[in-house]
Design a protein around this nucleic acid. Structure first.
Lengths: 139, 139
DNA sequence: GCTTGACCTCAAGTTCACTTGAACTCGTAA
DNA sequence: TTACGAGTTCAAGTGAACTTGAGGTCAAGC
């Protein structure tokens, strides 16, 4: 298997070539060389892209993700940082669960208007509290 | 209680005045009148803002939220839409839970490098699958 | 009467994560 | 040999959700 060019990586990863170029531009990935003009990538790119996707799913920004790689290209993930992120996800999940339950309830609630439904009112109260505390960034 | 001006609403809601003006500009909220130049808001604004915050927490865009109000200003929330959103939240929550568990595991994993840990590899595999399927928008 | 502070408008700027377009260079197939 | 498709660069544009800045208006307090 020769080193894939950008088209091959794009097809295999599902990411558009423009995104791959962008990722390279911001230093998130690197091409292993050129053949003429064309970038070639090391097959390790797939793992790297998977790591990036993982980070994105967990709600990290591209910057944060970039900071998680050592110069040698290996992940350098601080275990404490992982714990922090897991805790943050926990909080987010709790909020989302409450939201989901509230939505579901509102969808079924027999009150003529959502505004008159006690559960909906509870949701509203929670939402306005969130608003005041400044929302933690969900993904 | 006189109708609050933008400063009062800002203090009470925790939202910057610039945001309130912006919300008004895009038609998401309305001021009830002016006293000289200054906007005055109807006290109902707080409920409205809570509804908006609720929508934002649930992952709706400001546009979508705007569409949820009837011209009379009352919420006009489609029950089917609520169900859809709840289902979407469910899917998001599942993904986030998996992510959280994976992070937590990785933080504890004794493997010398995350890349060698089977659980982490499973996460990676899932992430690259997500990547290929095109991510559903989380909030 | 003058200053101050809170408000106003309007246009432009910001961040994030990309995408798009114009103009160019290759290698390959007809 | 020429045409084509897939790559290239660089600059500019996109969209969401705001923020910032310049310059202006007002009511209140000293």
């Amino acid at each position: 298997m020769k080193d894939p060019d950008i088209g091959a990586v794009a097809r295999a990863s599902g990411l558009p070539a423009s995104t791959l170029r962008y990722y390279e531009e911001i230093g998130l990935i690197a091409s292993s060389g050129r053949k003429g003009l064309r970038r070639l990538f090391d097959p390790g790119i797939y793992e790297r892209l998977a790591l990036i996707s993982l980070g994105r799913n967990a709600g990290f920004s591209l910057q944060e993700i970039g900071a998680m790689f050592a110069q040698d290209g290996n992940p350098r993930i601080d275990r404490a940082q992982l714990h922090d992120k897991a805790d943050e996800l926990d909080r987010l999940i709790r909020r989302l669960r409450a939201m989901r339950d509230g939505l579901r309830h509102a969808a079924e609630c027999p009150a003529p208007s959502h505004l008159e439904c006690p559960t909906f009112q509870r949701l509203l109260k929670a939402a306005s509290a969130d608003m005041k505390r400044g929302k933690s960034k969900g993904k």
